[in-house]
Deep mutational scan, measured.
Amino acid sequence: MAAAAAAGAGPEMVRGQVFDVGPRYTNLSYIGEGAYGMVCSAYDNVNKVRVAIKKISPFEHQTYCQRTLREIKILLRFRHENIIGINDIIRAPTIEQMKDVYIVQDLMETDLYKLLKTQHLSNDHICYFLYQILRGLKYIHSANVLHRDLKPSNLLLNTTCDLKICDFGLARVADPDHDHTGFLTEYVATRWYRAPEIMLNSKGYTKSIDIWSVGCILAEMLSNRPIFPGKHYLDQLNHILGILGSPSQEDLNCIINLKARNYLLSLPHKNKVPWNRLFPNADSKALDLLDKMLTFNPHKRIEVEQALAHPYLEQYYDPSDEPIAEAPFKFDMELDDLPKEKLKELIFEETARFQPGYRS
């Protein structure tokens, strides 16, 4: 834990890192770190609560700039109880001085990944967590956004079992017609939660990839272990087919990539493993919904509104309290091709509203 900075004593240090967030945020305490930044909790002297502050230093890398800009653009436009918001952003007053960006968010005690390492969940908890994931996802999908990296560590939890989806750095506007060349190379989302079509096709992607990830998360809540822990690309596919069985001819016809289709045709026939054999203690309604989410063919996979209306979630289902976005989200430009200098300018502009004396 960093010592509390005395008023006016300059930035606090946390594990050798400068955290320049005073005077409003003090009493910093280390939480963890990701690929390009550290997260601390801090005391907000204005709202009198502890908050989470993520320090991001992305400006050396085009990919990190892209992810940072995506996350900020999306989260500043989203407003939903099951999606983490941005409360404040701290950065230098000029673009030349801006080396880091500090993002202030609600402090959540833990995440689903940490929880599943230590606790076996009751059916009631599984049901409530799944409902909140789908409630947040309904809003995301209504904005025409794909999260693309749903996994237990991106689901934040607090002691009252509130759940918030975080990390929109890989999110995209849904565009089933656009052929994202190089899709697989830039697709760094965790393999275990990846839909089979991501490994088999490169053309376009749809909201059904997020539903697949939610199915993987439900299976993990039922058993405290990942359902498809593939060691590499082909191993991942083999794990999936080992449980779902061989795809039907109709399902194979959806695979545009001939090499991928021929690979699947070359494999020995596998039978589907019954879900109640894998999860003998699970609620039968939970397994019915799991089956509809972990469907090989993305066109037959359940959609988020149908999933919310499934009998497993009937005690929570309330369409009048499951809000959607006001308007579909649009990125003005494809960020993939922009140089990091341009992305830095866009991050600077996007964060201006939090600067003292800002006038829109």
Rank of each mutant, 00 (worst) to 15 (best):
E81G: 07
E33F: 13
R301L: 02
T110H: 11
T181M: 08
Q315E: 13
K285V: 12
Q97S: 12
A9M: 15
H180K: 08
L184S: 01
E220L: 02
Q105I: 13
V188F: 01
F228S: 02
I209W: 02
T68F: 11
I103A: 07
F331H: 08
V21G: 09
S246L: 12
F354R: 06
L75V: 13
H80C: 15
L134Q: 00
L155H: 06
M108P: 03
I72W: 06
P280N: 10
Y64L: 06
L258Y: 10
H141F: 11
K55F: 11
L278W: 12
C254A: 10
M221E: 03
P229M: 10
E60R: 08
N271K: 04
E197I: 02
D167W: 09
Q97R: 07
N27H: 08
D149T: 07
S142N: 15
L170E: 06
I198T: 09
H299N: 00
V49G: 15
S208H: 10
D44I: 10
A35D: 01
W212Y: 02
K344C: 14
V214E: 00
G34E: 01
D283W: 15
N262I: 00
V18W: 15
F59D: 09
E341I: 15
G37L: 06
A282N: 15
V49M: 04
N257Q: 06
L278Q: 00
R135Y: 15
T68G: 14
Q132V: 07
H180V: 04
A307H: 12
K300N: 00
G34I: 05
N238S: 05
G22H: 13
D106T: 14
C161E: 02
L313T: 08
N47L: 07
Q119S: 14
L234T: 07
R77V: 15
N87Y: 00
I227S: 03
S142C: 11
Y263F: 00
S208G: 13
E314F: 15
P247V: 13
Q62A: 09
E341K: 02
V39S: 04
K138R: 03
M333S: 11
D100C: 14
I95G: 14
I56H: 02
A171L: 02
A42Q: 11
H147Y: 05
L241V: 10
A307W: 09
S223W: 06
Q355W: 10
S266Y: 13
A52I: 02
D291M: 08
K231M: 01
I133T: 13
P280C: 06
F78A: 14
A282C: 14
C65G: 12
H269L: 01
D20R: 14
Q236V: 04
D337K: 13
D336Q: 12
P247F: 11
D288Y: 00
S57L: 08
Y102W: 13
A92T: 03
I140C: 06
F183Q: 08
V14Y: 07
D106C: 15
K48S: 10
W275K: 05
M293P: 05
E109C: 08
K292E: 09
A219I: 05
K300I: 10
C40K: 13
A171Q: 03
A282E: 13
D179F: 11
G242Q: 10
I103Y: 08
L200D: 02
I217Q: 02
E305A: 04
Q62N: 10
T159V: 06
S284M: 09
V18L: 07
L121W: 08
I217T: 09
P93I: 15
L137G: 04
L200G: 06
A325G: 14
R79K: 04
W192C: 00
R359C: 15
Y131T: 15
N47H: 07
Y43F: 03
I56C: 11
L157N: 04
M293D: 02
P311Y: 09
R70T: 10
G136A: 14
L76P: 09
A92V: 07
I209A: 04
A282V: 10
L308T: 13
L335T: 09
S223V: 03
K340R: 00
S202F: 04
G34F: 05
K340S: 13
P196A: 02
V145N: 09
A9S: 05
P274K: 11
H178E: 04
R225I: 12
G22Q: 11
G22R: 02
L278G: 08
G37P: 03
L150E: 03
Y30D: 11
E220H: 04
S57W: 05
R261K: 08
P58H: 01
H178D: 04
K292S: 11
I90P: 15
L267G: 09
L218Q: 01
S246K: 13
L294E: 04
Y25I: 10
N224Q: 05
L137C: 12
H178N: 01
L146E: 06
I31R: 14
A189V: 10
K117P: 09
H299F: 11
H269I: 13
F59P: 13
L115R: 13
D106E: 00
G32P: 05
R24T: 15
Y113P: 05
I84S: 14
K272F: 11
A286M: 14
M333V: 10
L121H: 09
L76V: 15
P11I: 15
A352V: 02
H180N: 00
K330S: 08
R24N: 13
L234I: 04
R225S: 00
R225D: 13
N281Q: 08
H125P: 05
E250M: 13
Q355Y: 15
L156T: 09
T94V: 09
N154C: 03
D44M: 10
Q306S: 14
L294T: 07
D210Q: 02
G136F: 07
K207Q: 03
L313P: 04
E81Q: 12
P23V: 12
H180Q: 01
T185Y: 04
I56A: 09
L115K: 09
I84T: 15
K330G: 07
I103T: 08
I347N: 02
L244N: 12
S153A: 11
Y113E: 13
P339S: 03
E341G: 04
S246R: 01
R261L: 00
R91H: 04
N82R: 06
L287M: 00
V104P: 07
G85A: 09
G37I: 02
Y358K: 05
V18I: 04
I95A: 13
S208L: 04
H120P: 06
V104W: 04
D20A: 08
M333E: 12
D162S: 14
K114D: 09
P323I: 15
G37V: 00
P247C: 13
L115I: 14
T190K: 03
F296K: 04
N154S: 01
A260P: 12
H141Q: 06
G242K: 12
G357V: 00
Q66Y: 09
A219G: 06
M199K: 00
T94A: 11
L252Y: 11
P268V: 12
I90Y: 15
K203H: 07
V104D: 02
Y139F: 01
Y316K: 11
S153D: 14
K203Y: 05
E314T: 15
Y358H: 06
D177T: 11
A309K: 14
C40L: 11
D291V: 01
R24F: 14
T185R: 02
P11H: 00
Y36D: 10
I103W: 04
I95Y: 11
P298Q: 14
L155K: 08
G245K: 03
E96L: 14
N201R: 07
L130R: 03
A282L: 12
V21Y: 04
D288F: 07
A309W: 14
N45Q: 10
W192G: 01
W192T: 02
I324M: 10
I243G: 07
G204E: 02
L289P: 15
N144W: 09
D251K: 04
E109A: 11
N123V: 11
K114L: 04
M98C: 11
K55W: 04
R277W: 12
D149N: 02
C166E: 03
I140N: 02
Y316R: 15
P226M: 04
K73M: 02
K55R: 04
Q306A: 12
L170C: 08
A42E: 04
P328Q: 10
L75Y: 15
D251N: 03
I165T: 08
G215E: 00
I31Q: 14
Q132T: 07
Q66P: 03
H180T: 08
R148M: 02
K300E: 06
T295E: 08
H299W: 10
F183S: 02
A52V: 02
D106L: 15
H310F: 12
E71Q: 06
L265Q: 01
I133S: 09
E350K: 01
V173N: 04
E322V: 04
S208T: 01
P356Y: 15
N158M: 11
E345Q: 13
Q315G: 14
H147Q: 00
H232V: 08
S122P: 11
V21Q: 05
P93G: 13
F329R: 11
Q236D: 04
F228N: 09
T94S: 00
V173P: 06
Q236T: 05
S29Y: 14
E33D: 00
A352M: 03
P268E: 08
V304Q: 02
R191A: 03
P323V: 15
D175T: 09
G182W: 00
D337E: 00
F19Y: 00
E109H: 09
N144F: 09
M333Q: 13
A171W: 06
